[in-house]
Write a protein that binds this DNA or RNA. Sequence first.
DNA 1: TATAATAATGACCGGTTAGTCATTTGTCAA
DNA 2: TTGACAAATGACTAACCGGTCATTATTATA
Lengths: 277, 277
Amino acid sequence: MSKKQLIMDTALELFAKQGFEATSVQEITSHCGISKGAFYLVFKSKDELILALIDHFMRQITSDIDHIVRNTKEEELLYQFFYTIYKYFYKHSDFAKVLFKEQSQTFNKALILKMQYYDKLLTNSILSMIDRLFGEAVKEIKYDLMYCVKGLINTYAQLFVFFVIPLDLNVLAQSLVEKTSLLAKHMTVPFISEDLVDLIRLCQPLNEEVTKEQIITVVDSKIAEMEESLEKESLVLLKEELLEPKFPPAVVVGLLENIRKHPHCKWVAYLLRRYFD
Amino acid sequence: MSKKQLIMDTALELFAKQGFEATSVQEITSHCGISKGAFYLVFKSKDELILALIDHFMRQITSDIDHIVRNTKEEELLYQFFYTIYKYFYKHSDFAKVLFKEQSQTFNKALILKMQYYDKLLTNSILSMIDRLFGEAVKEIKYDLMYCVKGLINTYAQLFVFFVIPLDLNVLAQSLVEKTSLLAKHMTVPFISEDLVDLIRLCQPLNEEVTKEQIITVVDSKIAEMEESLEKESLVLLKEELLEPKFPPAVVVGLLENIRKHPHCKWVAYLLRRYFD
DNA sequence: TATAATAATGACCGGTTAGTCATTTGTCAA
DNA sequence: TTGACAAATGACTAACCGGTCATTATTATA
């Protein structure tokens, strides 16, 4: 395991147990069996570490959700959506703990911006899911419905974030599918209107778009860190396409599919998919 | 204003703006225009201050909710429940901010216990509200419904905790009444079962009952700090009843009603009501 | 083996914190 | 005016933090 991975794994565990602020760099390095100086050879600051952790996990989940919302057939969509989210939280419960503990903290401006960014991605995914499933019929209530879905996810997520209980994720997902469908079908008094969503957006700073150059940087770093494999080869070809389009769409889609399932490529696949669309 | 009140008001404002940990005692006392030593004449520690703040506000809201759940006619109950909660959060938005910011923090064992205690009181109120409104019909889904109600409250509360937006609390309450009713009427796949509630309870330490002696202590301190008034006289009589029952129930109920509306007596009224029942 | 380059160390720095306590200031009755 | 008591002060302590950097250890190379 690389030193960076070791630090991130150890820190995640400690942050989950005692919180970000309450965990000192000294404590992290002691648990890793390395010196404090070694930490600062890998991360410029303690803040950079938590930002790296958030990125590492949120990139995976947001790109997975995006893929599901776009490619799952309608009968299964809601179920897959909830199931995937909770499966992920369940698998990475330490990360879920950190996310819930620190999400409402003020101490770090960059962290808040990052959280808002991923929240916006999730919001967009939920909205397009609602559009696909219910369309015109929920026009008046779609923003409220989106807010309810986010709220339900949060509410039930706390269960296995704060208690160590064996949970049946299948029943949980089914239960949330029913609740969402019920609300979509019968709700007539929404509270969140489109105006209100606009108002909320005004309170949040805008997140700038990802540029082509930034994507190239991400692709390059992924290529550098990966071992020889089909995924790496696909990534190299996609970079060429990025610099100078030459493949037919089918080839690009195929190459994207090649890398999408690699845990470390989900995010770059997501960025490239958005770019090539 | 007493020095204690001054400190609590100032601290609440600062905690809401920048968080508990990020606010130093020095900062609080500077804003108050007093010295650091003066602070420690009033509170034994910084922790005692936040505990006092939580108690001060949570006692009011939980006793208000308890009274509404017991005394509002069924047609208006759900509406009054939601409206009262949000009215309170709206009026004391600084407290709401502190509550949401610090609720998931680990740093203080006593604080967590306190939060769990008030959460349990709210849970019980919601459960008896559900029983009153829907009774046997929701037997299988009542715990899940309770969990949804708590989740909805939390979700929508974040709106005016983190954004400064004018909100129509009337529409908000109506919207939540509809959502709750919908779920109560149509839900068939609950996730939270009675077993699961028991499991969760096992994960939380039990909160001991309030003893008669503790109630007397609270009553005494209230009597000591109050000015001469009808409320104070009622409290004195209630204390006599506590030491040696002599009044008929109607008198006790009347005395309780006398003190219930006094902002500083809501909690003691709640404790006494539970004791005399 | 000798030398250069790289990796890793941990003592140290400046800064902040909660909490203490010897000292000063204010009050009020005699 | 005086003296006794209470209230208030803020310099001080001890501990901890994130981050730096001169020094040392390790590895690669010639």
